[in-house]
Design a protein around this nucleic acid. Structure first.
Length: 256
DNA sequence: ATGGTCGGGAACCGA
């Protein structure tokens, strides 16, 4: 079973690229982030016609997450628990193929310090609590998405330039480590302990051409899921295509 | 070179 995360940066502009990648990579479950549209405007029919089950949690203009799956998506929940006043569409979760798949778009947090950074850290505290609740069930689970955190300087092409950025701040990294330390396995680092790997390259300043990337898209596996990991990867080549997102897909393959 | 580039949606915000 192949599960993936892909920040598409706008579903309307990216649909042809997404369909192309789905055909090539043949994932079973995909979490999309930054669909940037309301539920009614998501191209549900185009995907359902190709056999995908689709669930969305959209928002006009910004944010928005969606789930695509070959198998039915059951017990879908929208929104990260812990703050009923949080109106931003950043979280959707479902049961699929016997595991719990959580798809998250963690707040960017820039500029920091400031209210956006405070929102990021508060959101991570809520995620920490919810992740612990998921682990407590002992069912296989995956926390997939755009985490907007570079776990270490090894995940940053230019750590000096990024030192004060919300994606690299010690507070962001500490919150990420606290969640991982609950017992989650970060799939890419488990598979590639010391390789230089990125999942995002900014559109600006020729970042892709210079390989000025960041690794911010992650798949965290519960112990029961990690026991089944047979492979993981980053589809780096997708970034070079016409009309590419600034992120590329990250995936994990679990034994049936 | 204190900018640069995208997406969404129609001026500017978010990243």
């Amino acid at each position: 079973m192949k599960l993936a995360t892909f920040n598409v940066n706008g579903i309307a502009a990216r649909l042809p690229r997404i369909l192309e990648w789905l055909e090539e990579a043949k994932p079973d479950v995909v979490g999309l982030q930054e669909i940037k549209c309301e539920d009614e405007r998501f191209p549900r029919a185009a995907l359902e016609d190709l056999g995908w089950h689709v669930e969305t949690h959209g928002q006009k203009g910004f944010n928005g997450v969606a789930l695509l799956s070959r198998l039915p998506l059951e017990d879908v929940s929208r929104g990260l628990p812990g703050d009923p006043d949080d109106a931003q569409a950043r979280y959707i979760e479902a049961r699929v193929g016997g595991l719990r798949f959580a798809n998250l778009y963690l707040p960017n947090g820039n500029p920091q310090p400031g209210p956006k950074f405070a929102y990021k850290l508060a959101w991570m505290a809520r995620l920490e609590a919810h992740a612990a609740a998921l682990l407590a069930t002992e069912a296989p689970a995956i926390l997939a998405g755009d985490w907007n955190v570079c776990p270490t300087d090894a995940d940053v092409a230019r750590p000096d330039v990024m030192a004060e950025d919300a994606l690299c701040r010690p507070e962001s990294r500490a919150a990420f480590r606290r969640i991982a330390a609950q017992g989650w396995t970060e799939a890419i680092r488990a598979r590639f302990p010391s390789e230089t790997l990125y999942s995002f390259w900014d559109y600006q300043a020729g970042a892709w051409a210079k390989n000025w990337g960041l690794r911010i898209d992650h798949l965290l596996l519960s112990p029961a899921a990690a026991d089944r990991m047979v492979d993981a990867g980053i589809d780096r080549d997708v970034r070079a295509r016409e009309k590419a997102s600034d992120h590329v897909p990250v995936w994990v393959e679990l034994a049936a």
